[in-house]
Design a protein around this nucleic acid. Structure first.
Lengths: 208, 208
DNA sequence: CAGTAATGTTGTCAGTGTAAACATTTAGGG
DNA sequence: CCCTAAATGTTTACACTGACAACATTACTG
């Protein structure tokens, strides 16, 4: 693969990924995913305004690719957060912290992941699968927690929705600057506290 | 105020609110706030495409008005959910259920409230204030709960963020059809369960 | 080495947000 | 009551966008 080093070769060589990267850059600069223009992305990459259509059916498809990349990254964060932890309940909590950590580390990805979505999800099998995999992490830990007698019984999916809702809501609020927190330490601490609380709520206890 | 009943009077009479209503209609039809066009709103109302600019500085301002209306509605739901309940912890939980109930009853409002937001919030004092008022409901109940010795000590805002995150996340997931629930009963039950769990997590207990 | 598939470009079109100039109606003070 | 100013709507115009079609260049495969 003779990567041309000439000034501006007719073929870009890696346009698909470059477009994804440029989109993320622009979203980060404007702190806004909804005003992103495909033509601007093309300009940023230094390519004609129609070139992106050779790699993406339409603008939405580009955003779907960004979202999918985001889910792969998220999965990574979840796994890294849980490694070296054994107790299922604590693993679940750690994954929650990892989730929030991902969101604040990759806000542009996160914005696209959860504002593009709507119906589309199903139109992009890769995206759909990546999302499902991330969600499955939580479900798995909950099932393990139940098996170990650490967590409330009941539909594991339902319990997972509750956990997911918490970290998703927290991430959204943080990313959209709804919470006046900027220091990373404070954010981590809040995430720790929130997931800890949620955990206690889902724990098997003497209940009401 | 001689409301003209002629075919199409030059002056609409109530254009501002009609635009808000039409915007909500269109968002509901497309299940999507981001593809809304100002010109389409104008067409729906039967007015020229520049008429909206007599009432809103730009498209964003119209959406801000929709969001503000949404927050007033939300406040209503919160209050109605708590009335007739005395115990602060249970009031907080009920408000959470009310929150979710609002979101699924007024998804178009909700979509605008939490996708327009970004920086803008501060640019629209009315919106900002309405949002703060809704959030304050949760903070107040938490403070009451702490005073009554029912809830964990600590910054009430921080506890409120946790509660808010949960119901916000749950609402988002429900509205964007990320959770395969459609029956209103099931949704209510999930909201009950989630807020109940969260409540137990925040409750004063023998915790670790 | 030929010719086809892949990739990028130019030109075009309808639709959008917004501003400016113009038109109509309403309201209030003489 | 009239007459003018403010409020409200309309028309026209412009730059920008997403998307498509026709064309140009390059890469790859038999």
């Amino acid at each position: 693969m003779p990567q041309s080093t000439k000034e501006s070769p007719y073929h870009h060589g890696n346009l698909r990924q470059s477009l994804i990267d440029a989109a993320l850059e622009l979203i980060a600069e404007k702190q806004d995913a909804k005003t992103l223009s495909l033509r601007e992305v093309a300009r940023r990459v230094g390519v004609s305004h129609a070139a992106p259509y050779r790699h993406f059916a339409d603008k939405e498809a580009l955003l779907a690719a960004v979202a999918e990349e985001g889910f792969h990254l998220l999965l990574d964060y979840l796994h890294r957060a849980m490694v070296h932890i054994d107790e299922p309940a604590r693993r679940l909590q750690a994954s929650g912290v990892g989730y929030v950590r991902f969101a604040i580390a990759h806000p542009s990805h996160y914005r696209v992941m959860f504002s593009t979505l709507q119906v589309d999800y199903l139109n992009y099998p890769g995206l759909n699968e990546a999302g499902a995999k991330a969600f499955a992490v939580m479900v798995d830990e909950i099932m393990a927690g139940q098996a170990a007698g650490q967590m409330k019984t009941g539909d594991p999916q339902k319990l997972a929705w509750v956990s997911w809702s918490l970290v998703h809501g927290l991430s959204m609020l943080l990313i959209e600057h709804q919470l006046p927190l900027t220091d990373e330490q404070d954010i981590e601490a809040l995430a720790e506290f929130a997931t800890q609380s949620s955990m206690e709520g889902l724990r098997l206890g003497d209940g009401p």
